[in-house]
Structures are given as C-alpha cells and as structure tokens.
C-alpha cells in the first residue's frame, strides 16, 4: 500500500522519535530522499526533540515523596479510625488535627484537645521515641510543597525523618543554623505549621 505525501508527512514526528514500524520507516526515508523540505523539517524536529530531552529539570524528588506518604497515611488512617470507633469524627481534617494533638501530648509537651474523646493509642502510631531530629512538627493539611520548602530553607532546617503515620516530621537545623531562631520561625508561620515541639529522645 502506497500512501500519499500528505499522509506520510503526518508521521514525521514518529519517524523522529523512532516509533514507526520498519516498513513505515523505510517508506518515509524514501520520501525524504526526494523531498528536501520534508527532510529539513525532519532535521528541525530531531533538533527540537534532542533539545527537549536534554532539558534539565528539578523535580519535587524525595520531598514530594514524603508529602505523598504523609497524605497517603492520612487517607489510610481515616477508615482505620472509624473501625476502632474511638470517637466519632466529623471530617478527615478534624481527625487529623486531633490525632496530631494526641501525638504532641505523648511527647510530654503542651497540647490542646478539642474534645473529651480524643483518639488514644490503638489505631495510631506515634513518632519513634528514639528517632533523630531536634524538633517534631506537623504542617497544615493542603499546604503546598513550595511553602513548606521555602519555610524550611529560610529557617535553615532539614527533614531528617517522617512523615510518621500521623504526619509528623522530625527536623534538624543545618550546620551553622540556630535551633531557637529556627523554632521561632516555625512558630511564626502559623498558617503553615500546626505544631512545633522540641523532640525528647
């Protein structure tokens, strides 16, 4: 079967990316040998493809994965909490906040529980007691990764573990950073940070 030039021209991009069959490729090459304009287009597209593939791009990387795991754990925790019937919770967000508060209590620091029936123990995993990090932090749900990253970079902090099943992160100051200054920066970011506590290992 012989195709028209116009039909074959539509396959030019797939000639360039190497996904045509051998027969189609041979047909195209024969056409290009006689058609200088199409051959020039092929060369231009090949350059564009090479340029695109060579483009360096910075991805969310491990931070994006940590964020994903945090939210997956939050998703997974919702039905588990319902099964244990510890307390009736009206929304996932509310439950998350209550659970985070329990974890903070377990770290023997100040905490606030908005109801008398807060979740306890069963069904939840607290941040590891011997985990690394000077601070234990939870972030507001739905905070964009960019805001968290900017906050941590600005405060000279890094995530050393987490998120835990409750979405808690353990942070350390970078070399040369000051823990008190960093803690103050986190506490000042009230729209991003839900809780900040000193870790007690």
């Amino acid at each position: 079967m012989t195709r028209s030039r116009d039909e074959m021209e539509l396959d030019l991009a797939f000639l360039v990316n190497g996904t045509l069959s051998e027969a189609e490729m041979a047909e195209m090459e024969a056409l290009l040998a006689e058609d200088d304009l199409l051959a020039a287009e092929r060369d231009a597209l090949a350059t564009i493809r090479a340029e695109m593939q060579a483009e360096e791009i910075r991805t969310p990387g491990e931070f994006g994965l940590a964020r994903l795991m945090r939210d997956v754990n939050r998703d997974a925790a919702a039905p588990a909490a319902a099964e244990t019937k510890v307390v009736a919770l009206r929304s996932r967000t509310w439950m998350w906040q209550a659970a985070a508060a329990v974890a903070v209590l377990a770290l023997a620091v100040q905490a606030y529980l908005p109801t008398t029936g807060a979740p306890q123990g069963e069904g939840y995993v607290l941040a590891g007691a011997s985990a690394p990090g000077a601070l234990v932090v939870s972030f507001a749900p739905d905070t964009p990764e960019l805001q968290i990253r900017d906050l941590l970079v600005g405060a000279e902090l890094e995530i050393v573990s987490g998120p835990s099943a409750l979405g808690l992160y353990r942070l350390d100051v970078l070399d040369g950073g000051d823990l008190d200054t960093a803690t103050a920066a986190l506490r000042a970011a009230r729209t991003i940070v839900e809780s900040v506590e000193n870790a007690e290992n």
């Binding site: 791009i57 910075r58 991805t59 969310p60 994006g64 939210d71 964009p144 990764e145």
Partner: peptide
C-alpha cells in the same frame, strides 16, 4: 514515574510549583 510525569505536567503549565501540586 515522578520525573517524566512531572516534566510532562510542567511542559503544559509552565509553572513548576503548580506542577508539583498536580504531580502530588
């Protein structure tokens, strides 16, 4: 898949921060 999918999203949005949220 993080890298190729992120690259695809960025190429359509021209906004790396929004692209990170969509990747998520």
């Amino acid at each position: 898949y993080e890298r190729p999918v992120y690259k695809f999203i960025v190429s359509r949005l021209n906004d790396p921060h929004e692209a990170a949220d969509i990747l998520h």
